[in-house]
């Protein structure tokens, strides 16, 4: 056997010392799939000896896998709550998990009213449309929000995605906050009961239906919207905000960095300064890993994601916007504290 090993060893090249290497395994939301691919590209440029496998099975599946030692990171669309953050002590050490924001993905209300390209909606109006209570585009309530716009007397056709999604979660949160009492207090990723029947199997089906149907309206993320659809201005508090990267970047810059739960960093958006309906992408890591090789692998990933280049790649390849500088600094501090010593 030793002869065989010697012969076969002759074929093997030497491993450069001091480089990060290993397989990074992550599980999380579908919406982070594109960004993870963009970050991976940048990360692998710096570390040739790494690979990444990301399975978009959802945030809850990801968190469970992380705390069961079946993945090295998880991805979700909300910061961890204090109870969850302290989970997984047997695998992740006594401090449990850390949670950091990694990207912000604007969500727009896309519509197809042929030549009409400017429309304003507030949360009660959007709630009425999605619950099927406002059924005509020339409804007096919509007209009141859009003075000077000649709205057609055609049916409003809400097109909603059937499967649970981060976009639905973001809209649920927005409507529950801005239209209290009109929208069920839902923090889930599915449309609450009372919403019009969802018809799109996949988000691509939703987009196609909107494109084909005059009078259609849907909520879609910025990557899908691109320059394909007209998008409504939305009301946050008392102010209508334009949909767009600049507007959302303003909401991010003015938003708070919250660290109320230990090892959990949260990015808030300020709707008074910019467009604040967005998916807040987060990643979750263990505070401690079984060995230094894994800890350095995960640290290196987190640093790469939060680096300027990583964030630039995310904008270019997946239309994700970076968290604020303050939030990024706080997130990096948590990532750099990832260690190997089990507590």
């Amino acid at each position: 056997m030793s002869v065989l090993a010697t012969f076969l060893s002759a074929c093997a090249a030497q491993t450069p010392a001091g480089t990060v290497e290993g397989a990074l395994i992550g599980i999380g939301t579908v919406s982070q799939q594109g960004a993870v691919a963009a970050w991976a590209k940048n990360w692998k440029k710096d570390h040739a000896g790494v690979s990444i496998a990301y399975s978009p099975d959802g945030a809850e599946v990801g968190k469970t896998a992380l705390t069961n030692g079946l993945s090295y990171f998880a991805a979700g669309d909300a910061a961890l709550e204090s109870g969850t953050a302290s989970n997984g002590q047997s695998v992740c050490g006594r401090d449990g998990l850390i949670s950091v924001p990694v990207a912000v993905v604007p969500v727009g209300v896309a519509f197809n009213l042929d030549e009409i390209q400017n429309l304003q909606l507030d949360a009660p109006l959007l709630s009425g449309i999605l619950r099927g209570k406002i059924t005509k585009w020339d409804d007096p309530q919509i007209e009141a929000a859009n003075p000077g716009v000649s709205l057609p007397s055609i049916d409003v056709v809400p097109v909603l995605e059937k499967s649970p999604s981060d976009v639905t979660h973001a809209v649920n949160k927005y409507l529950a906050a801005e239209a209290p009492g009109l929208w069920p207090d839902s923090s889930g990723s599915e449309w609450p009961s009372g919403t019009v029947r969802a018809i799109g199997e996949k988000v691509s089906d939703v987009a196609q239906k909107v494109e084909e149907t005059t009078g259609a309206i849907a909520v879609l993320d910025t990557a899908i919207i691109g320059s394909r659809f007209s998008v409504a201005r939305l009301k946050f508090g008392d102010v209508y905000q334009d949909f767009g990267n600049e507007s959302t970047l303003a909401a991010i810059a003015a938003g708070e960095t919250v660290e109320s739960v230990p090892r959990v960093v949260e990015q808030r958006l300020d709707g008074s300064k910019g467009y604040a309906l967005a998916v807040l992408e987060n990643q979750y890591f263990c505070t401690r890993y079984r060995n230094e090789a894994t800890a350095s692998l995960v640290r290196s990933w987190g640093e790469s994601v939060l680096s300027r280049q990583g964030q630039r790649d995310a904008i270019v390849y997946s239309s994700s916007l970076p968290p604020s500088e303050q939030t990024t600094a706080a997130a990096l501090k948590q990532v750099r504290a990832i260690t190997t010593d089990k507590g």
Binding site: E21, G22, A23, V50, S51, A53, S55, D57, L70, A293
Partner: peptide, 21 residues
């Protein structure tokens, strides 16, 4: 609990786990 969308998660030596690199 070990089967996910992209495959089954197993425990193997690190150099084998990283063969996708």
């Amino acid at each position: 609990g070990t089967s996910f969308g992209h495959g089954v998660h197993v425990r193997v030596p690190a150099y084998i786990a990283n063969l996708h690199a």
